[in-house]
Design a protein around this nucleic acid. Structure first.
Length: 108
DNA sequence: CTATTGACTACCG
DNA sequence: TCGGTAGCCAATA
């Protein structure tokens, strides 16, 4: 059952609500959770999200850069997943990032 | 207990 | 425009 008292689990819930073909940033999630200064914690939570049903590949830094791709299997799995959703990625950076950006604060 | 590290972000020159 | 630095908070050694 959902222990939403944990900051990590809150991150998972938000990330899980990211619609198909959209992405968001660590800071956006952190800000939505009321911890704008804890963007690093969101990324830290993603490291532990391997066992959860969390589309961590849809979460990137505020520049649209795939900083966490090294945590996925292989070397380009994260990019491949994004491209599979219709998101163009070049040099570990999402193209037209603003267009695919999904803000939880606005959507929720 | 302190020090180091990290899937970040904002500020400064 | 761009690179470096500081602040941030939790986990790990």
């Amino acid at each position: 059952m959902s222990n939403s008292s944990l900051f990590f689990d809150k991150c998972y819930e938000v990330v899980r609500q990211i619609p198909f073909g959209r992405v968001t940033s660590y800071g956006a999630v952190a800000r939505y959770l009321g911890a704008a200064k804890s963007a690093r914690m969101v990324g830290y939570a993603m490291t532990a999200s391997h066992n959860k049903d969390v589309p961590a590949h849809r979460v990137v830094n505020r520049k649209g850069l795939l900083t966490g791709k090294h945590h996925f299997e292989g070397t380009n799995l994260m990019q491949q997943l994004l491209e599979s959703e219709g998101i163009q990625v070049k040099e570990n950076q999402i193209i037209d990032f603003e267009s695919v950006f999904w803000d939880p604060a606005k959507a929720l």
